[in-house]
Amino acid sequence: MDTPEHRRQYTERIERAAEEQREGLRDFSDRSRPAEERQSALRRAVALRGQDEVAEAVDVILDREEDPTLRASALRAIGIEVGKSHDLIDMVIGLLRDGDEPEMVRQAALRTLQQSSFRAATFNPKMPEYTDALRTVIDDPEDSLREQALEILAQGKDEYAQRRLLESLEDPSQALVSPGKAVQLLGNDIHADYYPLLRDMVQDPPSTEAKQEAVRLLAADPASKELLVDILRDKNEYREVRNASAAALQSLAPAEFQEHAKQIILDDGEYNDLRATAIDGLALFADQEALSQDTELSSRVEQLKEQPPSDEVERSAARYISMRASGETGPAAAGTNV
């Protein structure tokens, strides 16, 4: 790398980008141009930050006669400034709430607000209004908007969203999202009284993905230990569901996981992907003292490394042996230089 040359070339790239931004700004401001050209100009301008530029963009955003694509682009282009201004946040929340606005504009509003929420110093005082708008949107006819709003609220452990999710699982006619998604979102704030519902879902799942999500959430339910073992050992079960049960069981009952993982590793009739998962679960998290005394397991893992039935088993066996060699988590333990 010739460094002065590298710096010179890089500076030229920056200067070209600056020139393109200037051209974009100029073309966007030219109202005689068609919407398509102004939208393309906005992409080149990248971000509108000056007072006059932002005012011009706001005019476009609020003008329902304008092309929705241009309005959405203008909204995205003032995203940085929205994160600094309560007035602009209010304006964008209004767009999100307004069911008469085109979906494209409301999607842009939602993304801009979510981005602005990272500017905590400005945005935090507006969080109650944003939350209230999101609660409105979860009943919106637009699937995508509804699901996104529900996700954002559920991640924040919003009590209203949690209640609506639970209702939608108990009564499918109230469903806001698919059962699998509802279970996943409930997992953001799991309560013990959800467990009976989740166990029922595992026994009679509406979909494989819903079952996978429910299995995950049972990781903190002691009453589900046997259920998780049954799933883990069921060769007719979907791989993703067995994998979820492996992670859940490892967390809930590490000793039981260790024993069943060993049986899976020793079983030549077992699926290789699950054997790799079992080897890794032991290598990374099991009781290293107990493992060090298990010569049957060690010699089988050695054999799997020497005569690997698959690439994933070979990789996991190599990691296991490397960690055993180091005797603890450490430089050699942390991986291989494959």
């Binding site: 997992g187 959430l217 990781a219 994998n243 979820a244 859940a248 967390s251 890794d280 990691r319």
Partner: peptide
């Protein structure tokens, strides 16, 4: 994740993985 990816067991906020 690919089987054997160490992130298969990634968990935060309690026992639930993923």
């Amino acid at each position: 994740f690919e089987p054997g990816n160490p992130l298969e067991f990634w968990a935060t906020d309690g026992a639930v993985a993923g």
